[in-house]
Simulated scan of single mutants.
Amino acid sequence: MIDMGAASEQESIARTFVAARATGAALAAYPGKMPETLAEAYRIQDVAIARDGRRVGGWKVGRIAPELTQAYGDNRIAGPIFIDEIAEDDATMPVFAGGFAAAEAEVLLRFGDVGDGDHDIETVRDCIEEVRTGIEIASSPFAEINGHGPAVTASDYGNNKGLVLGPPIANWRERDLIAMPVEFRIDGVLVGAASMAAMLDGPFGSALFLIRILRARGIAIAPGTCVSAGAITGVHDIRPGQRAEALFDGQIRVGCTIAAA
């Protein structure tokens, strides 16, 4: 039986977030009863995607803190990335000036044909056509989006506001991506350095997770869909006027300038 009260609440939350994102307005408080489960969060997200009307060109995947995975029943969350917010290297990327804003160095996977079969950490590689460097722009009208647990984060598009596509990683099938060093700078200052070894089971684990969660939600993965596989060096606060730059393997650069939405 459908809980009409809960459905109405989810509709109201989704409507408020979509309107705030369309106008660039900040939200001083969460616009309703905060979701307590990922199932509730994805219902809000699904309503918002439908109301938004833009085409989804990719998905961001974010990690759930280890101490929260048991309570939420998963170790990652997902959120849509709209096609009009996917930009090339050196783009200007908007954020919500009165809300939450951050930038993250990420590896981007581009799906080919996923098919209907089951995959594991090895066979999922056959579904990937390209691996690129990139930067995820994490931003929400609600400044405390990451302060109330992963369900709240997931409910507003997973806290995504865009994706910067950097150069591809050549010969990625033969390379040890997990060991690749990554650095992140804001206005030229080093703010994070790490490798993908810190990313649970790495970017291909993120691809596996996304296939599973989208199938459960009845969402098809079209060929060409991007996956922003998760923060490598951390989630780095950023503000309009600043420049973000990621350096992969000491030689592959991708950057963007931040502006107010």
Rank of each mutant, 00 (worst) to 15 (best):
R173I: 08
R125F: 00
A50V: 04
E106W: 11
G230I: 07
V235E: 00
M199V: 14
A28M: 08
G158V: 08
C127S: 13
N75P: 00
E106C: 11
K161W: 03
V227W: 06
F82Q: 01
R55W: 00
I232N: 02
G230P: 05
V191N: 02
I221P: 04
I49W: 00
D187P: 02
D176A: 09
G5V: 05
A91M: 12
I128E: 02
K33L: 13
G112I: 05
V47W: 01
R212T: 13
T233V: 03
P168M: 04
A194V: 01
E11S: 12
G57V: 05
T225F: 07
N159C: 15
Y30K: 12
V95H: 02
A20F: 05
L163M: 13
I219L: 13
A216E: 15
A246I: 03
F111V: 08
A25W: 00
I219W: 12
E11F: 09
T123R: 01
A194C: 02
A7H: 11
A97T: 09
T133F: 08
A101M: 11
D156T: 08
A154K: 08
A231R: 05
D84W: 10
I13N: 02
A216W: 00
V124F: 02
E36G: 15
P66F: 05
A48I: 03
V235S: 09
G224W: 12
G5F: 03
T225P: 05
R21N: 06
